[in-house]
């Protein structure tokens, strides 16, 4: 498999905590990704359906629309049903994980336990880019 550059890849980050969102946006941008951002599930869904990113980084607890509801709606969309979704949360609940997996989530990360560096590595692996 020929690995592509991050330049062609778009990532949508949906996260309600502004500093966390900023850290993710800055990191993935500096890695060469095209990064889109949304501060709640509702805006995130709109943006996703409009921009069709290659991967969605999704928080769970958010105002207006939480991550799980957003994911459910995303999977109802013809494009959205196959897009790669990585859950990034500070909840470590089995129930939520199970729910997330039903929504065909590819990774489930507890934010505090992950370095940005490792997170980038995993996302790159998912997208098959260097």
């Amino acid at each position: 498999m020929t690995e592509q550059s991050t330049k062609n890849k778009t990532i949508l980050v949906i996260e309600d905590d502004a500093p966390t969102l900023q850290a993710l946006v800055d990191t993935f941008t500096s890695e060469g990704f095209h990064v889109l951002k949304a501060k709640d599930g509702k805006k995130g869904l709109e943006l996703a359906l409009k921009e069709h990113p290659d991967l969605v980084l999704l928080d769970i607890i958010m105002p207006k629309m939480d991550g799980m509801t957003m994911l459910k709606k995303l999977r109802e969309d013809e494009w959205g049903k196959d897009v790669q979704v990585v859950i990034l949360t500070n909840l470590s609940s089995v129930e939520k994980t199970a729910e997330a997996l039903k929504g065909r989530v590819y990774d489930y990360f507890v934010k505090t336990n992950w370095k940005l560096e490792d997170l980038v590595k995993r996302v790159k692996e998912r997208l098959g880019v260097r």
């Binding site: 905590d17 966390t20 993710l24 990191t27 607890i61 500070n90 507890v110 934010k111 505090t112």
Partner: peptide
Amino acid sequence: HQLRTPLTNINWYSEM
């Protein structure tokens, strides 16, 4: 859980 959000930020910003 509430503690984890600021902890994440300290973590990631110092890492950056």
